[in-house]
Nucleic acid binder design. Structure first.
Lengths: 197, 197
DNA sequence: CTTTGGTTCATACGTATGTATGAGTAGCTA
DNA sequence: TAGCTACTCATACATACGTATGAACCAAAG
């Protein structure tokens, strides 16, 4: 019959969901093990500590996001077009906790988890590569690729949380599909204009 | 002689500093009262609860940021120029915890504190007003002012935390004054290009 | 069948948490 | 001077926390 996933896998899934939503400090070990239907000691046994589990979660979701960045960057198309596809992916892909977790960790006054730094390195590497390629072919303006890359990512990372902003402030209902398309179009247009030569 | 500030004021200052750095969940009542040199019961007595103190802090820092937005928006100058000044202010003003606190609360899956919503309303109102003014005089391109305003604020809000990103990833040392000028110039240029008609 | 190693379990521990509370203090007013 | 109010204090409370630990279980190997 169908076996349920092993305990470490269930812990990772439960922790990913809870850490993504509420952050490291607000999520307890008991809450994770309860969600995973595992024993209280399972986290310490399999991962060593709550913090180690947190790092394993970031490694998992971070690798997923970085893989998406790198894979879209490797597709065919003009650099600006591929940048648009990455931005669209960040804005529209469901179950993508990494952007929110990055922002939250950046907003905390504590060392960045190493797996998060690794993810950022890959993301920035992919984005900077596209920017350099566009600068080489003349489609993207001159400028520091790292700064341009950070500017590019700022908007989708933050506007991905647009649904959190009351609609009378945001001007859009972030949960409505047609306004999500409008948001995507807006962000892609804005980024393209700021990069174009 | 010089009197020290009253207890509620000391609690607000201590809480503002600690909540700004570490967020609501990671800061304890005992840590705040210790920093404020006040009694453990002082928070409950003066504010009602830890959460009420948190809201008071957001109200305080949020009003400050909104006041800065509104006051720069009311200065003389072209709309794009004043937008540049607001962006520069966000990136360079020391002791400005509101942007980080906004991002952190947006990244949490819980209701936004009411004072934070009020602050965002004022900030967006000021920014959208400038954008509409620019659209009216032809200097800013057509587009939904709310979306344009959110795109404008995404970059400085996020890149204000550039010093948190390891310099081999960010390409700049966010703590170095000359690279801060470079960062400001980059962000203002990027935003201006994405808005210009 | 026995042994072994990995895993799960229930419980315990020391510490930490936010809030509550009665006592004491200080300043003000009639 | 007495009464009152606002404030501060020290302590208590119930609950929660992350981690540790020995016992029990299970599957595989010899």
């Amino acid at each position: 019959m169908n076996q349920r996933p092993p305990v470490p896998e269930r812990l990772l899934a439960a922790a990913a969901d809870l850490f993504a939503r509420d952050g490291f400090d607000a999520v307890s070990v008991r809450r994770i093990t309860s969600r995973a239907k595992a024993n209280l000691g399972a986290i310490t046994y399999h991962f060593g500590s709550k913090e180690a589990l947190f790092h394993a979660v970031i490694d998992r979701v971070g690798a997923h996001l970085a893989d998406r960045f790198v894979s879209i960057a490797a597709e065919k198309g003009a650099p600006l077009e591929r940048i648009g596809r990455i931005v669209t992916m960040v804005l529209t892909e469901p179950n993508l906790p990494a952007p929110t977790m990055i922002l939250r960790e950046l907003a905390m006054d504590r060392p960045l988890p190493p797996p998060l730094v690794q993810m950022m390195q890959r993301n920035m590497g992919a984005m900077m590569g596209l920017i350099r390629e566009g600068q080489a072919d003349g489609s993207i303006r001159a400028g520091d690729p790292a700064l341009l890359a950070m500017s590019v990512m700022a908007q989708p990372f933050l506007l991905r949380m647009a649904s959190r902003i009351p609609r009378d402030i945001a001007g859009v209902d972030g949960n409505d599909p047609s306004t999500q398309r409008k948001l995507v179009k807006h962000v892609v247009t804005t980024i393209t204009r700021s990069l174009a030569s």
